[in-house]
Design a binder for these strands. Structure first.
Lengths: 214, 214
DNA sequence: CGTGCACTTGACAAAAATCAAATTTTGTGG
DNA sequence: CCACAAAATTTGATTTTTGTCAAGTGCACG
């Protein structure tokens, strides 16, 4: 989810928004809470998830710096949000938004929603894949693309979330994710410095599994 | 994907839009075609899909009367669209849209995008489920909700798409879908008049499988 | 420097993919 | 309206993958 706001707008925003901090693991809000603010991440990583009635949680999206969240329906948030790392963010009360909505901003919102929609469709595409290995590879590819898009180091992929969050995002179990990492490593496609840093060592095989020529 | 346009707007639209017809099975457009129009379905059912490089296709959404489609990125459509039944639709050239964008319409667009985003997230949630039976049940529940939302008969669920389209939407295989239908029927949860009409005969079990109390 | 949480790994059962054949429906041209 | 071909669906047999449960390992943090 890319930048909703231009730098210019961000600085305007900074004047009216509060900066808030969340500790790692903190709940930012819960599904069905009254929606009274939207957030714009300055630093850190956040997960948006919903809990099925059976208690199983499904992660709808991971959010990174620049991303905006706070989507609501009928005045209530539509998913729960939790900080995966320490997070700092702008917190913009909806009252402010109601008065300051200008045409340019509206256009940005439309652009952002389109982007998120595409992102959600890509997520669905990933989930529709039948092999865990392939899902995991697509997931890593997604992280990599995000990082290169931000001009961050390309040689290694940084994986800020833990295995069980990955599992809940790609629609499988913790154990399956772990096995998939092992298989990828065993096949010489991946190499991991530690749990959060992996390197692609066989590009062709990697891209083939992710199912994209690009 | 609900109505982008009020009745009033629809009639204004009718004046400037062409009405087009597609036969069952016809391609409306393909991913990466130049996007020169958006469509608003009058009658019929359409599927939006993307083809993985390996030729496997994944269905991102089914579209029904009132729905709008034609999402583009950088002037190109982002998925392929095909008529599942005979379809009639308004075809609105983008040139028209560019000039007629007023504030009210923009608001409608935002509302619609939010809705589609939620829909895509629900799709992802469905796909994240591990059992085919549960996915199929959620899918049927989705169809049912759509139909009751439109005030159509509640006693039976109409299934306009074929088994293989269902499979591609819920992320499994044709054979698995067929078996899931059989199992649901055998357990007395479902009853089918024919391939396109099913009735829920055990509501509790149905809702439990779909994982929603509602 | 231990305790706990995150992760890995193994064993097994269950579910799903795959391949293939049999059967039903549907659409079409007489 | 019928016969037939083509397409859609069901079903079966088999193989793989995955979920599940559980035990073991290692790293991080107090």
């Amino acid at each position: 989810m890319p930048q909703l706001l231009s730098d210019e707008e961000r600085s305007r925003l900074a004047a009216i928004a509060a900066i808030v901090r969340f500790k790692k693991g903190a709940e930012i809000y819960r599904e069905s809470d009254r929606a009274d603010a939207v957030f714009n991440i300055i630093s850190g990583v956040v997960k948006a998830y919903t809990c099925g009635p059976d208690g199983k949680e499904h992660i709808a999206a991971f959010l990174f710096p620049e991303d905006v969240f706070g989507l609501a329906q009928e005045g209530r948030y539509v998913n729960s949000l939790k900080a995966l790392t320490t997070v700092t963010a702008y917190r913009i009360p909806v009252t402010v938004l109601q008065s300051r909505l200008d045409a340019a901003l509206e256009f940005h919102i439309i652009a952002k929603l389109c982007h998120e929609l595409r992102q959600a469709q890509r997520h669905a595409f990933l989930l529709a894949s039948k092999r865990t290995i392939s899902k995991l590879t697509m997931f890593l590819q997604m992280l990599e693309q995000l990082q290169t898009a931000k001009g961050e180091s390309t040689s290694e992929i940084y994986v800020p979330m833990d295995r069980s969050d990955i599992a809940e995002y790609i629609g499988t179990t913790l154990a399956a994710v772990s096995r998939a990492f092992r298989t990828l490593t065993a096949r010489g496609i991946l190499q991991s410095r530690d749990r959060r840093h992996v390197k692609v060592t066989d590009r062709d095989a990697f891209e083939k599994l992710a199912g994209r020529v690009k």
